[in-house]
Computed example of a mutant assay.
Amino acid sequence: MKKYKVGYTTGVFDMFHIGHLNILKKAKERCDHLIVGVTTDELVSYKNTKAIIPQQERLAIIESIKYVDQVVLQETMDKMDAWNKYHFDAMFVGSDWQGTDKWNAFEQQFGAIGVDIVYFPYTDGTSSTKLKEILEDILHEHTSD
């Protein structure tokens, strides 16, 4: 298993769950210094939704996790902009993105400058999207009565 000096990962981290913890733990196991970008409330709109947990609270949650060495705001989806600021040598991401056009392009772009993209197994059965859907169903049941 290759160990990196500086690793980077990002996320919305809305409704923090075990999948989030898994990726942060695995990322820290693979690097000496883990930088985590927390997506701003404004940028969350790329998922065509709004964060339930406000940005400042999501930052506080991530800052409190022992696997995280540095927390930054992710204000753009431009990963190269992040590399220019933080000079990481590995970017960690869930396997649900592996093989997509977007991440294939990142692999080429970052491979050219010696940065590895490392995929971790997606945690089946949980996601913030699924949690939101369950909450909406429960809310709908209670308002329909």
Rank of each mutant, 00 (worst) to 15 (best):
K2D: 11
K3S: 09
K5L: 07
T9E: 08
T9I: 04
T10G: 13
M15G: 12
F16T: 11
H17A: 09
I18R: 12
H20R: 11
L21N: 04
I23P: 09
C31S: 06
I35P: 01
T39S: 07
E42R: 14
V44F: 01
S45N: 11
N48L: 08
I52D: 11
R58E: 01
R58F: 03
R58S: 04
L59E: 13
A60N: 13
A60T: 09
I62G: 01
S64L: 07
S64V: 10
S64D: 12
V68G: 01
V71N: 09
V72H: 01
V72Q: 09
L73T: 05
Q74L: 13
E75Y: 13
K79Y: 07
D81C: 05
W83N: 06
W83C: 00
Y86C: 10
F88E: 00
D89Y: 02
D89N: 13
A90N: 10
A90K: 05
M91G: 02
G99F: 07
T100V: 10
T100C: 01
T100L: 06
K102V: 00
N104P: 00
Q108F: 00
I113P: 06
D116A: 07
I117K: 07
F120V: 07
P121C: 05
Y122H: 15
Y122P: 12
T126G: 04
K130Q: 15
I134A: 13
L135K: 14
D137Y: 08
D137R: 14
I138H: 13
S144P: 04
